[in-house]
């Protein structure tokens, strides 16, 4: 089975710094996640996540600051409001909502970052490639 492709949208202020912290601590985690730095988790629109799936990602991560710690006060509230609904949309469309990971990592939480990445990569590894499911039924 090919290695799963995962795209991670990380907020500039907490999660991206958290990834740096993990790196500086020499923590090991799977290399499957390609990181895209965004100004805020609230920047990640549902369309962006869906397009990422359409382009062939097996899993998408949206990581932001913990609720209450957002650099823009309430930017991550947008993610916290939209992403659970998007998970429901995926569920009702027959796409495993587990393929979308929404979580919070602060700049100091290198270990938490490594653990979230490791756990999510394992989750996606257990699923078939999304492109395999996303083909029209012949008939």
């Amino acid at each position: 089975m090919p290695e799963p492709k995962i795209i991670g949208f990380l907020c500039n202020w907490c999660s991206y710094r958290g990834a740096d912290t993990a790196g500086m601590a020499r923590l090991k985690y799977p290399p499957n996640v390609k990181i895209v730095r965004v100004p805020c988790s609230g920047r990640v629109s549902p369309e962006l996540v869906l397009r990422t799936f359409r382009e062939g990602a097996d899993g998408v991560m949206v990581l932001g600051c913990h609720i209450g710690d957002c650099h823009y006060s309430t930017g991550n509230h947008r993610a916290a409001k939209r992403m659970p609904v998007l998970k429901k949309v995926l569920e009702y469309s027959g796409i495993d909502p587990e393929r979308l990971c929404v979580n919070w990592v602060s700049a100091a939480e290198g270990e938490r970052f490594a653990k979230i990445i490791t756990d999510f990569t394992e989750t996606i590894r257990a699923l078939p490639p999304l492109t395999e499911e996303m083909t029209w039924t012949k008939g």
């Binding site: 549902p46 369309e47 869906l50 397009r51 799936f53 359409r54 469309s93 796409i95 996303m134 029209w136």
Partner: peptide
């Protein structure tokens, strides 16, 4: 193409 962007969006 799937996933059906039109319907999901």
């Amino acid at each position: 193409p799937l996933p059906p962007m039109y319907h999901l969006v």
